[in-house]
């Protein structure tokens, strides 16, 4: 059964980018196994989800003590998902400084269709070399700015324009902390839309319960690509819930090309097979979103706060004050030790 469309027929096409098998990894300490990857990728493919991203939560080459070691290596994850996808395109994510061109070469050998290069929102030039490499290789490259609440709309627009010059085929922002309210998103997406001629993407987190609303704001402001995950399976409070977003978009008159029943089946399978429980906005997730801290820090903060006997909410607010960015998990230990020492003093 096809999702409902407006009486006027399908409206503007919105491309749904399914990050369940990448961002979801944050929620399960990067421990998805081959059977889980295969089952979900097949279900998403059957539903007609156009893009399926796979990998460690921080992308290619990121398996580490710093952010968590993955159960499977990148090669294994890519080869399993590649085999499971017939129509959906396979996507991977990479942060320069974590993965290298050698990782991109291996992903290309696995016939990856789309590569996303991520950088902190003010450091887009770190992606210059890798975007250039992907352009030379003829691989579709998207450039995404992480922790985008830490920069002004004007700055984000300038960074996006530069990323297009480096060779990005699409650009956009991640609300990595789940900090935005819809008006924040409208302003930023509109500024980026104005600055570039390539598709613009938006990736939400749900810390303040705004993921679907923010995604709607993004598409109304001109975004062409929206990220979402089955049951919101993702870091912290989770991402935009894919099987909610798609029918919402269809009701608004946008076309996604995704089959509703297939999508709901994939989401049910995800809840059953991939996660101990669907992400929820628990108390530390609210604090994390308010503090503007990377959602992927959650499990590590809880672990270390428990070990050092400090309040994880204090750890989040202090990390926010220090403006920690994605990848700086090593700061968590120091912040926790500092809080403990201050209490003892």
């Amino acid at each position: 059964m096809s999702a409902a469309t407006t009486p006027d027929g399908p409206g503007k096409r919105v491309l749904l980018y399914d990050a369940s098998l990448r961002d979801g990894h944050h929620a399960v300490r990067h421990q998805l196994d081959g059977g889980q990857l295969r089952a979900y990728a097949s279900a998403a493919d059957a539903a007609g989800v156009p893009m399926v991203e796979v990998g460690h939560g921080n992308g290619l080459g990121a398996s580490s003590l710093q952010v968590g070691q993955a159960r499977l290596g990148d090669d294994e994850m890519l080869s399993i998902v590649r085999e499971a996808l017939r129509d959906s395109r396979m996507a991977v994510f990479m942060l320069p400084g974590w993965g290298t061109t050698a990782d991109l070469e291996r992903a290309i050998a696995h016939q990856v269709d789309v590569v996303r290069i991520g950088t902190h929102c003010t450091e887009g030039d770190l992606a210059e070399r890798h975007l250039g490499f992907l352009r030379e290789q003829g691989v579709e490259a998207q450039a995404v700015l992480l922790m985008s609440h830490m920069a002004t709309p004007e700055r984000l627009a300038r960074e996006c324009a530069r990323l297009v010059e480096f060779g990005a085929n699409a650009v956009g922002i991640m609300d990595s902390s789940g900090h935005y309210l819809p008006a924040d998103v409208t302003e930023r997406v509109a500024a980026m839309r104005e600055a570039v001629d390539v598709p613009v993407m938006f990736h939400a987190h749900n810390n303040l319960g705004m993921a679907v609303a923010n995604s709607v704001a993004a598409v109304e402001a001109g975004a062409d690509i929206l990220d979402a995950c089955a049951r919101g399976f993702g870091a912290g409070a989770g991402n935009t819930q894919l099987e909610v977003l798609v029918p919402v978009l269809e009701r608004m008159g946008f076309a996604t090309g995704i089959d509703l029943y297939g999508l709901l089946d994939a989401a049910d399978l995800a809840e059953r097979e991939l996660m101990p429980a669907p992400p929820t906005i628990d108390s530390v997730s609210v604090v994390s979103g308010l503090a503007g801290v990377f959602s992927g820090f959650k499990n590590r903060v809880l672990d270390i706060a428990r070990r050092e006997d400090v309040d994880p909410r204090d750890v989040f607010f202090e990390l926010g004050r220090r403006q920690a960015v994605a990848g700086q998990e090593d700061l968590i230990v120091e912040v926790a030790l500092g809080l403990k020492a201050a209490r003892g003093a």
Binding site: Q66, G97, L126, Q323, V325
Partner: peptide
């Protein structure tokens, strides 16, 4: 394994 992060914090980290 080696990893490099660039921090944008102000004042700089």
């Amino acid at each position: 394994k080696a990893i490099l992060n660039i921090s944008p914090a102000r004042p700089p980290a």
